[in-house]
Amino acid sequence: MRKSSEPQNEMLKGTLDMMILRTLVGGDAHGHTIAKIIERTSEDLLEVEQGSLYPGLHRLEDRGWVSSYWGASENNRKAKFYRLTAEGRKQLVRETSRWRQMTRAIGLVMGEETQG
């Protein structure tokens, strides 16, 4: 079921990072919640690959954009929680504005009406 996902994944790498950061604005969360939030918010259009999610989280942590700790989940299970750092917040702002510019630019090229 995930056979053809390789190239798409590569393309989404940067956006996945951005979305993870965006998700964490709402509070600390563990991997499962993060994936679920992204899927729900995108009205299930996006499916988060676990194969990209965990390496992605580790990458973000390594860059100092998120920090992590082991805590108890809503169901009282041990889970690794991620928290947005100050640096991560700044990064999110940068990426969001770049994303906006990009979508606008692509939208212009594709001739779509930009909705006010």
């Binding site: 563990h30 991997g31 499962h32 919640t33 989940s73 169901n75 299970r77 889970a79 690794k80």
Partner: peptide
């Protein structure tokens, strides 16, 4: 770490 995380994911799911 990742292994444990994935275990906890399975548990949650």
């Amino acid at each position: 770490d990742i292994q444990r995380e994935m275990e906890s994911y399975v548990e949650e799911e």
